[in-house]
């Protein structure tokens, strides 16, 4: 039996997630089919076929996949599910929504947010906002899984998979896409940036003015705490943590961030953590590799200058 991996598109391009999920799926050492769905899939299908470790790219093209809705993706996967013993998606907004729905229709309990796979049926996943890691044995013959992409090294390019078109079930039209408000930014994407600098609510109204020049010099993405987002100092897509984006940069710089456990849950996989805080007892220093005890309003301009 083979493995089905769900890809995701950003516009007409393949999201980088796919390379991580394919890498996770390689644990089973079975042929991998990568499912690509969209309204214009030619470009993404080529990118998908180029990922090493992919046996076949299944292409499902339909107008209603321009903005994929959970019910439509569910029906598409259900139409081919019986050929697979393992179905894997990313633990992304779409993956988290659609994988449990697919699983329920197949009378399967999914294993979500997996960070380690010991094929065929043992997993490790975080619980309690990352304070606990549990080893789970899945007793079901069909394994349905979402994986935390930062825990799996992406596969490289250089594959040459066969591309196969599959037919798309008609939409049940239970839901309809209305609109999207996307915050455009020239900075690297938060979820995949090599460097992230994040601020807490203490940065106040000057959040962007304080962090932007430094982010520019470090080619870093900017992140924020929930308290900072809730106070209206940063847009919500910058939130890092359990209920925001999970990140795993090479360097994470936390400025004026207390280090609440829900925040830490999102940065645990970072390689090097730096904290700048004026409170020597701030919990963030327990998780950081390097600390500077300083007032952020003087430390940030200094940092900016030092990087010039």
């Amino acid at each position: 039996m083979s493995i089905l991996v769900l890809a995701e598109l950003d516009g007409n391009k393949l999201k980088g997630l796919a390379a991580h999920v394919v890498s996770a799926a390689a644990a089973w050492q079975q042929p991998i089919d990568l499912l690509v769905y969209g309204s214009q899939v030619d470009e993404a299908a080529k990118e998908a076929a180029n990922l090493s470790g992919v046996a076949r790219v299944l292409v499902a093209q339909a107008d209603h996949f321009a903005h994929p809705l959970v019910e439509d993706v569910q029906d598409l996967v259900l139409s081919i599910a019986k050929e697979y013993s393992v179905i894997v998606g990313a633990h992304s907004v779409l993956g988290k929504s659609v994988i449990p729905a697919i699983a329920a229709r197949l009378d399967v309990s999914p294993i979500t947010d997996v960070v380690e796979i010991h094929a065929p049926s043992i997993y490790v996943r975080p619980e309690y906002a990352g304070n606990i890691f549990s080893r789970i044995e899945n007793h079901q013959s069909l394994q349905i899984v979402t994986v935390r992409n930062t825990a799996f090294r992406p596969v490289s390019a250089g594959g040459n998979a066969e591309v196969v078109s599959i037919s798309v079930p008609a939409s049940r039209a239970l839901s309809r896409w209305v609109k999207e408000d996307i915050n455009h930014s020239d900075r690297p994407e938060l979820g995949s940036a090599r460097v992230v600098i994040a601020g807490g609510r203490s940065l106040g109204e000057n959040f962007d003015a304080l962090l932007s020049p430094i982010a520019e010099k470090l080619d870093a993405a900017i992140g924020a705490t929930r308290a900072c987002v809730d106070a209206g100092f940063a847009p919500n897509d910058l939130q890092v943590g359990q209920t925001g984006t999970l990140i795993a940069p090479d360097l994470y710089i936390a400025v004026g961030i207390s280090g609440a456990m829900q925040h830490i849950a999102g940065i645990k996989d970072s390689k090097v953590v730096v904290a700048i805080n004026h409170d020597p007892d701030a919990p963030i220093f327990k998780y950081a590799d390097y600390g500077v005890i300083a007032d952020l309003f003087t430390a940030l301009p200094e940092l900016d200058k030092a990087l010039q």
């Binding site: 309990s109 619980e127 789970i136 044995e137 500077v292 430390a299 940092l303």
Partner: peptide
């Protein structure tokens, strides 16, 4: 139940930050 939690563990604790005197030393 469809799966079993075989064993849970707490992630290893970090030793705590190395404190540096100022931003220049940090860089």
């Amino acid at each position: 139940n469809r799966f079993t939690v075989i064993k849970s563990s707490e992630p290893p604790q970090k030793p705590g930050a190395i404190q540096l005197a100022n931003v220049n030393e940090l860089i």
